[in-house]
């Protein structure tokens, strides 16, 4: 694939916003000045919109040729509110606001409305590969000549979804997490924190460590990179990460990333890799619930 550059990365976790890896203060009221819009936004919408607007800051709206977002579970808080009101009010007299805000593309849509961006606007909801799908689309958009693409990933925890996921045994290895990440992608390298996305691949279903290692070696080979030169960012379970380190002769120490689990955590791993890896080539190995797997190969610019 044609290398695509990530020139800016923003992350919002809790109340902490980082831009290109450095913490930056922000005031949501200054980002969204319309009080009516602000009061209707749920927690995840506020997180995503704040992170997206900060990431798009400095770019003229007409130079943003696409907003592509990813979410595994969407705006859960609003969805739950809406579903609950269906039950409580016997499917009658439903409040419009939670319904309007519960759609998966609420955040991408709100950013477009607030910034007056009328370009391509798509949201990917592909379980643990939502962000990877959005990244592939963003890379294709840039390859087709789009100037800048705003790429984001957002997921939230709510008490009831946490309860359901615990009962389903989805928290056996990691506690649940949440966060918002946004990136600016384009075809030109600029800024000290730029990284090039050289390759992306995804797989679904159970993967043995042998299959994973064969997959990693294959990706390195097809990109003309020695596996020993890779810096691994392990966004997978600890045993797998240890096994990779034992079996691949790596010159660089692997970086451990995964401390929680949510469908779009790969976006957090990408932010981490861009802002912490100094090696020429970084490989992000992601695994969501041992079902969705991805490899993202980055090059330092």
């Amino acid at each position: 694939m044609q290398p695509i550059t990530i020139t800016k990365s923003c992350q919002l976790k809790g109340d902490v916003l980082t831009v290109n890896g450095s913490e930056e203060p922000f005031d949501f009221k200054e980002l969204v000045t319309n009080a009516s819009l602000r009061r209707r936004m749920s927690r995840i919408v506020k997180m995503g919109v704040a992170c997206g607007l900060k990431c798009a800051e400095g770019l003229p709206s007409e130079e943003i040729d696409g907003i592509i977002t990813a979410t595994g579970l969407g705006c859960l808080g609003d969805t739950e509110k809406f579903m609950e009101s269906i039950v409580v009010n016997s499917e009658r007299l439903l409040n419009p606001t939670p319904f309007i805000q519960s759609t998966f593309n609420t955040i991408g849509g709100q950013i477009a409305l607030l910034r007056g961006i009328h370009s391509y606007n798509v949201t990917y909801v592909h379980r643990g590969l939502s962000f990877e799908s959005a990244l592939i689309d963003a890379a294709m958009q840039v390859a087709e000549g789009k100037k800048n693409v705003l790429l984001g990933a957002i997921d939230e925890i709510t008490p009831s979804s946490a309860d359901i996921q615990r009962r389903l045994g989805m928290t056996r290895e990691y506690e649940l997490g949440e966060g918002a990440n946004f990136f600016v992608l384009n075809a030109t390298a600029s800024g000290s924190n730029s990284a090039a996305v050289l390759d992306i691949d995804t797989r679904s279903g159970r993967l043995t460590d042998d299959e994973l290692i064969e997959w990693i070696v294959g990706m390195a080979e097809r990109n003309g990179i020695k596996t020993s030169d890779l810096c691994i960012v392990a966004n997978c379970n600890a045993a797998t990460a240890d096994n990779i380190e034992k079996r691949l002769p790596l010159k660089n120490k692997s970086l451990w990333f995964k401390t929680c689990e949510y469908p779009t955590l790969t976006a957090g791993a990408l932010d981490f890799a861009i802002n912490n890896c100094t090696a020429n080539n970084t490989l992000i190995i992601s695994d969501y619930q041992h079902i969705n797997h991805s490899l993202i190969l980055l090059g330092r610019i």
Partner: peptide, 17 residues
């Protein structure tokens, strides 16, 4: 208060419910 049309729908629901 600077309310808008979506708020009007919410007020209709308050009156009815």
């Amino acid at each position: 208060l600077g309310l808008d049309s979506i708020d009007a729908l919410e007020i209709i629901l308050i009156l009815e419910r």
